[in-house]
Every structure is written in C-alpha cells, then in structure tokens.
Design a protein around this nucleic acid. Structure first.
Lengths: 373, 373
DNA sequence: TATATCAGTGAATCTGGGT
DNA sequence: AACCCAGATTCACTGATAT
C-alpha cells in the first residue's frame, strides 16, 4: 500500500458511520444536526431564494405566506431569510472538516445576504465565481439586462485554513491557462433535464452536471465526502458518483428524492485511470540538487549559467554553488544574484548539453525517469 | 415646445442650486448632507473594497506587485465596514430622485456586504452585472481561481419605482441582441490610464471609461445629474461630460481632485478606442478541450487516435490525455508522440463516431452550434 | 523602417513543512 | 509562534529597445 493510499484509507476511517451515498429525507438543519463534527470534506449548497416571485410570497422554508393574515413586509422577509441562512450555515460550519470548503450558489435575490452570512459565520471567501450562461432565458419585457449569470461563493473554514485546490487539473481543463473566476457553461436542458411523467421539468432550478463537475474536480479528491443540504434532483450526487467521490444528500421533498435516487443509480462511475488528473510538481517526489551531484548526473566543478548567461556559478561537491565569494544553494544564490526575494534554482540555472543550454530541472526529470519504477 | 422637451426643462429647474459639473473635496457623507432631498438622477459608487491584503506579493519572475495599500481601503472589522457602507447608502437614498437608480461596484471582499446594505436601505435590486475582465492579473501562486471579474449592483428606489433603462440603446450596442448581465471589457491601461509626473499610476483603481459609458448610456438620459461619491480621478465625470450628462463628484483626496479636474477639462470627444472596445465587446467564444469533457460531449475514459490509428490515448477527467505513462494536453501529447515541436490537437486527435473517425474539432463545432444563440 | 525581443504591470484577501 | 529555507508560480497587453 503506497503512502498516498494509506493517507486516504486513514481519512476514510473517519467516514465510518456516515450515511454515505444516501439521501436523507429531512429538513436540512435537522439532518445536519444528526452528523458529527468535522466529518465532511466539501459542502455544495444551492439554497432556495423564492422570496417574492410571481406575486406569491414564500417563506424560505417553502411554506406559503398569506398576505392577509400574516404580518409581513420586506424587512420581515429579509430577516427571516437571514435567520434561515445563518441557521444552516452554522451547522454547515460545524460538520465541515478544518481543511474542508463550502460552495454556495445563488442569484442577486439572495447571494448578497448569503455572502454576508458566510463571512459572518467565520468562513473565509476564496473566490466568487460567476457561472456565465451560454443560453440564458431572455428578459421578455425588455426592462432590465438579461439575467445571464449566477454567482458561486467558495470559502474555506478560516483565513489560515488549508484546503484542496487542484490547480494543475483546472489549468489543464482550461487549455493550459489558469482557470478563471468566470465559467461559461450551458444551462441544464436537453436530455439532461429531468422531466416528470407529465413532461414538465421535475425541478425548477436543476443545475447542469458540468457545473458540479468543475466544482468537484477543483476542490475535492477521490473518496472525499461531499454534502449537499439542498439536494433537489441530485446533480451533486450524480456527479460525485461519476467522479469517485462519496455524497450525502439532504432533501425534504419526497418527489425530488425519488427522482434523484433513480438518476444516481444510472450514473456510471469512471474507472480509476480516467479519474487520474494532472498533478502539480509539489506532489512529485523531491530530489535534492546534491543528489544529482552525488550520483554523477552533474560533476563537481561543472559550470552553470542562467538562460541568458548573465551569471555563472560553479558546482561544489556538497551541492552548493559558488560565484566569486558568494555561495549558497541553487535557490539562494539565484535569488541573491538577481536581487530577487526568491528564486527557483531548478529553472533558473542551466547547464550546457550538446551545445544547448538546458535548465537543470531537465536533469532532475532524467534522474526521476531512470530511478522511478 | 413639445411635451417631452417640457418635461426635461421642468426637470432641469430642479437642478438650480446644485454644484453641477463640480468636484466637492470633502468626506462623501458630509458632502451628500449638503445636497437637498431627491435631486439626483443616478448615483455611481466605487467605494473602498476593504481588500485586507497580507504581506508583499511577488510575481514568478521576482518583480513586486504594486498592491492597494492606501489608508482609505483599511477598515478594522466587517462591522466597521458595514457602518461606513450603511452610512453613505442612507444619504445616497435620501438625495436620489424617486425614479433614480444607484450603481455600486465591488469585489467579493465587499460586494456581499454592500448588496445586503443596499437591500436593507430599501433599494430594489434590478440586476447584478459582472464586469468580466479581458486581461486580469493572474493568480501568481496558483492558490485559487484567477480573480477575473468584479460585480456591479444596479438598484431602483423601490419595488414599484420607475427608472430609466434604455433598452433599445443597449440592444444596438450589443449587435441587436439583448444586453446581458455579463460585460466583457478590458481593464484600464494604456494611454487611458492616468499617470503622475513620476510616471506612476495616479490612482490604484481607475475604472475604464468603457464601463462607465455603458452604465450611463443604459440608465440615464441626456441632461440627467449623475453623482459619484467616490470620484477618484473622475472617470464618471469624464464620461458624463462626453455623453451630455451633468455630474457631481465627491472626493476627499486633494491629489485625485487635481488630476480629475485636469482630465475633465480636457474633455475629449469620446475616445475612438473606447468606442471600438464598446462595440467589439463580444469576444469570440473560446472552447477549451476540457469543456467538452465537462459537458459530456466526450466522456473521460474515451479513446482518441490519430487519423491513421498509429497512436491512441485515453481522455482523463481533467481533459488531459494519457498514452502509457505519457500525459498532457491534446496539443502537448500529440507533439510528444510525433516528436514534433508542436501539434494542433484539435485536428490531430480523432474519435470514432458512427463507425467513422472524426477529428475532435468537429465536436467543438457541434458544441458551439448547440450553445451559441 | 519593420520586426523581434524584452521589460513592465494591473482592486490580490497568493506556500508549506520543518525546527 | 516565529523563523528558516526549499522551491513552486503568471496572462494579456503596452511600450521601449534591439536587430
């Protein structure tokens, strides 16, 4: 069993007793109260925001407000929504692991209140991400801008908290450019959109699987436990299963639960080779520069230069470099010579190979290829 | 005198006594207190973002990032920032006409708190608009998504309030398609970026004129009075003047006021490059290979080959390809396998479709056809 | 003179493990 | 908790300098 596998296995011991890959049919706060502290790796939440739509007024819990008998106004409505939001966020924070993150999606109706509550709950916002819809519903009355995006908030458990971000995988996914905070993805339609027997859409705000795909690929690792407290028709569960993550869904409506169960059962898990993603150099086995000298990949006395031959240095037997009376590690000397705060010596220093300057990092690659099984 | 002209003339009677087309050098709340109730047609506010930056930041090449470290952006706590925000918003609401609107721009650091305060002050949000930056600063350390957008909130004085929205002008500006809530515009640089005598930027957060152009064109009429309580170097004033709107600027820093005065006095007719930017704002849709994987056009685990089936590779979850122990993007792996310096993966790699090998570029075409309006 | 290369920079909450 | 140090990390665009 390799080292990484061991770490994962140990992490999964903590999963014993959790209702993994199941849907809890319950109020989201009540259901979260049944989960232990710090047991979840990531939360994806798509909370309701049906405040004042179509002349009808609904409470955040979905119950109908009778305007005749209920004493309400805008303030009451916002205050009630805030109480609801702060309630479920407090539970979310309790069950989230220290190195976990939370995602919340919303529109201008609710996202500002949610974002404020996220910050007030002690979460630390990492990014806001806009889902730019390729094909949004037009504004029929021509009274405003076409509402063509939704906003996601991504937050860690605190300013100093660790978190998972698969930087390299995101960069690969985006054609070798850093993934940005604006994601252009189509809305959920066509065969992906779940329908009831009567042909009507099964859920009013079903999210596209591509959105969850990117969220899960960016911020979780295989085997991680993802909780969705507003599970709906189970997009989070379907994508989690496909990507080899575990899920816990919470959904109050029986009809949605049934649709979600069927849908997730049909989702095909990818096999492990397809799940492998590009890794950052950070996780590659480390090779000290001195090792290359010891093993003869580079001889003591060899001359290194930067790419433009502005500086040169001599390799010493202990793996340090020397320029004049300056000495130090490949990183330290590179930084000192450039007057920079830091320097990656592996890419800064070059050696001549077949009449060509090559970064010493290529020697490290050669070494790794020759010695790795 | 026609009816419309009369309305305008009457409206302009109300402007008598206002400090039109002037900059008030004062604290924004104090200055607003000197203005009468309901005298302003539109407010554009670019308040401090409360960035809360840590230490110094250096680019991978060792150069230093010139961050926003000005005192005006420092607040001790969220509570202090909220007090500040609610204070100026209350005055803003008082001086705004019943049929006026307010715009506020911010980033994830502050926009959620601002949006909540906007709603609590009784404003009615009409849209949130995302300014998608064509050329944002990258995330140098690879720790998060590139922060590539800012958010604008547009709100009326209440749910039933009338307001100005020049639907037709926006549609024309957007190539006869409804203007959407996502605006792709470059950041402010080049000759438009104001510099001090020392060549250093005059203001750390100068907004592009193209942004204000769209805001003013969308939500004001000629002759309207636009107030900017955080005037800075006066982008709002310059664009207002060019578009035949009146402005009132409020700015506390003497240095900014001086720069703004000079700039507005220069009052060039709308810069041609700005107009070009406005009209060519629709960027060509880019489709990364990974997007086809996310959206299900190609499943992870699928096998790709070249046209003559000499090589094959497996598609992985992050859009990378794998052949044996070689991995990389469609372009990189294609190049490596052929021993070529570069390769167009879109035409090199093929997938089988109805028993026939087709270049994956055809999938990209299919995707574009299905998702572009 | 035209082209290629280099240098600079923009609202940024920007490392992590060991001692 | 503070310090040390290995070493990983950037995109689009502008304007100046070099060829």
């Amino acid at each position: 069993m390799g080292a990484i596998t061991k770490v994962r296995a140990r992490a999964q011991d903590a999963q014993v007793g959790l209702p993994l890959d199941r849907i809890l049919m319950d109020d989201c706060i009540d259901a979260m109260k049944g989960l232990p502290d710090k047991c979840i790796d990531m939360i994806f939440a798509d909370p309701p925001y049906n405040l004042q739509l179509g002349g009808e007024l609904f409470r955040p819990d979905g119950s109908h407000v009778d305007a005749v008998t209920d004493d309400w106004d805008k303030f009451d409505t916002f205050a009630a929504y805030d109480r609801f939001t702060r309630g479920w966020l407090a539970e979310a924070r309790r069950i989230l692991k220290d190195d976990g993150t939370i995602w919340v999606i919303g529109s201008y109706h609710n996202i500002f209140r949610v974002g404020t509550a996220v910050q007030d709950a002690g979460f630390w916002i990492l990014n806001d991400v806009v889902w730019v819809k390729a094909n949004p519903m037009p504004n029929f009355k021509g009274t405003r801008f076409t509402n063509a995006h939704e906003t996601l908030i991504w937050a860690s458990t605190g300013e100093k908290a660790k978190y998972t971000f698969n930087y390299r995988a995101m960069k690969t996914l985006n054609d070798e450019l850093q993934m940005r905070s604006d994601w252009a993805l189509p809305i959920c339609g066509g065969p992906e959109r779940l329908k009831n027997a009567d042909g009507h859409k099964a859920h009013p705000t079903q999210k596209p699987e591509a959105l969850l795909y990117r969220v899960l690929l960016a911020a979780t690792r295989p085997g991680d436990v993802v909780l969705d407290p507003f599970f709906g028709t189970g997009t989070t569960g379907a994508v989690a299963r496909r990507l080899g993550r575990r899920f816990i869904g919470i959904e109050r409506e029986h009809a949605y639960v049934e649709v979600a169960k069927e849908r997730i059962a049909a989702a095909l898990p990818l096999d492990e080779s397809a799940l492998t993603i590009m890794q950052s150099a950070k996780s590659a086995p480390k090779v000290a520069f001195g090792l290359l000298v010891e093993t003869g990949y580079l001889a003591p006395g060899a001359v290194l230069t930067d790419a433009k031959r502005r500086w040169s240095a001599i390799v010493r037997a202990d793996g340090s470099l020397q320029t004049g009376d300056q000495t130090g590690s490949i990183h330290k000397l590179g930084a000192v010579l450039q007057g920079a705060p830091s320097c990656n010596g592996w890419t800064f220093w070059h050696h001549e190979e077949a009449g060509e300057l090559k970064p010493i990092d290529s020697l490290r690659q050669t070494y790794l290829l020759a010695t790795q099984p």
